[in-house]
Design a protein around this nucleic acid. Structure first.
Length: 212
DNA sequence: ATCCCGAGGG
DNA sequence: CCCTCTGGAT
């Protein structure tokens, strides 16, 4: 993607969705952290389905601890990787209670010290909960950034650095959501819907089979 | 590089 | 059947 195309690329995405947000459902920063932790290699639809039952009975770290490991597993068994996620989430709750007064920490270091929280999850919390201009490079953003030529890279960290360099400051916070939504609904992994993509004029990718 | 793993779609 | 989904830890 040419540098001069980057501004219109994001302006176009903004025009279609002026105030983007995550599609994960939550009513507190703790619920956001828990939802993002559970969303690894899972769809947000599937996560919401589970958390709509879980959060009313475990909306705080202490309530989650009171629920117990087996109790928590019962709520999230429909989500992939659930044994690992249940264990990590319980340990994370224990750390929140014992070391952070039951609150979600606001620094990258403290967030990444939580079990099950890596760079991507920390970036989502810093962006969505605390308004910081981070780039959480997930499967969608990695694919979209490479396909379009916006910020190509061999691994997520490389893509993240290029995004931070290339995305105009005015779009720094919201661009995260636009790229996710673009990847989820248009620039899909298997069959990208280029024929109905609003930013196709700025994109490097050309489909081999000009779908329909 | 490999393992963790359920649901939905093609 | 196979692939994908807002990854993280080893």
């Amino acid at each position: 993607m040419k540098t001069e195309d980057i501004e219109p690329f994001f302006a176009t995405l903004k025009a279609a969705n002026p105030q983007p947000n995550t599609e994960l459902e939550y009513t507190s920063v703790f619920e956001l952290l828990a939802a993002v932790l559970l969303s690894a290699q899972a769809t947000d639809v599937g996560v919401n389905k589970a958390t709509r039952r879980l959060f009313p009975v475990a909306g705080t770290p202490q309530a989650m601890l009171d629920l117990g490991l087996d109790g928590l597993q019962g709520y999230i068994k429909t989500i992939g990787l659930y044994p690992t996620k249940a264990r990590n989430l319980m340990q994370t709750c224990r750390i929140l209670v014992e070391q952070h007064g039951g609150q979600v920490p606001r620094t990258r270091e403290a967030l990444e010290a939580l079990p099950g929280v890596g760079r991507k999850t920390a970036n989502v919390v810093l962006n969505v909960a605390f308004g910081q201009p981070t780039m959480a490079v997930d499967t969608h953003i990695f694919r979209v950034s490479n396909r379009t030529g916006l910020a190509p890279g061999k691994n997520p960290l490389e893509v993240e650095k290029r995004l931070l360099e290339r995305v105009p400051a005015q779009y720094a916070v919201d661009s995260h959501h636009w790229l996710i939504l673009l990847g989820r609904y248009v620039c899909q992994a298997r069959k990208p819907r280029c024929w109905e993509c609003a930013v196709a004029p700025y994109c490097d990718y050309r489909p081999k089979t000009p779908a329909s």
